[in-house]
Write a protein that binds this DNA or RNA. Structure first.
Length: 182
DNA sequence: GCGACAG
DNA sequence: ATCTTGTCGC
């Protein structure tokens, strides 16, 4: 985040960030070649700051039907601090991706293309868009790795049945469900 | 001191 | 993030 101080780790990651398209499907008008899209999230319970439910879903593309989902209760080591979200949430989410790789090798995302969506974000790093027909609330799409902002926005729109992109919407549903069970 | 501030 | 159910409308 522009105004915030950055850690050495964050500076390093920023230098490695590739903000251009690197895959063939990204420049195809219909994203031909893209077979799956995924979403990850973390859910919490009211007064608990360390226990959370990590969730991962994989959807087919362009059908956008859930093909795989995993949930796992995790303990978060880092506290929530604006600007340092990844230090808190990335570890358990990456762990789920490794679990996917081990349990369902066929569903692995051929290349990791982080495309993050937040309820708000510095606009210098992303773009606000009206994802569904007449929705007033914008959806913010941030820059990703190995995917241009323009493509990220186009892909996000192609994943929207409703305002919230389907991968995010599905993972939220599953996350909430599983959180309520523990 | 004031405003900003992803979950 | 989380606290909460139904309800009105396209």
């Amino acid at each position: 985040m522009g105004t915030l101080l950055e850690t050495p780790e964050q500076e390093c990651l920023k230098q490695c960030l590739v903000e251009e398209d690197t895959e063939a499907w990204q420049t195809d008008p219909d994203f031909s070649g893209l077979k799956r899209v995924g979403g990850v999230d973390l859910s919490f319970i009211k007064g608990d700051e360390i226990n959370a439910c990590a969730q991962l879903v994989i959807l087919s593309y362009p059908q956008l039907e859930v093909q795989y989902e995993v949930s796992e209760m995790v303990n978060l080591s880092a506290p929530y601090i604006a600007g340092f979200l990844a230090f808190r949430e990335a570890p358990p989410l990456l762990q789920l991706l490794q679990r996917l790789e081990k349990e369902q090798p066929s569903l692995i995302l051929s290349l990791s293309l982080p495309l993050s969506l937040y309820q708000s974000i510095s606009l210098t790093l992303g773009q606000a868009l009206r994802s569904s027909g007449s929705s007033t609330k914008p959806v913010y799409v941030s820059v990703g790795h190995r995917i241009s902002l323009a493509t990220a926005v186009r892909l996000t729109l192609s994943c929207c049945r409703y305002r919230v992109p389907e991968p995010i919407r599905q993972v939220n549903t599953h996350a909430h469900t599983h959180t309520l069970l523990f």
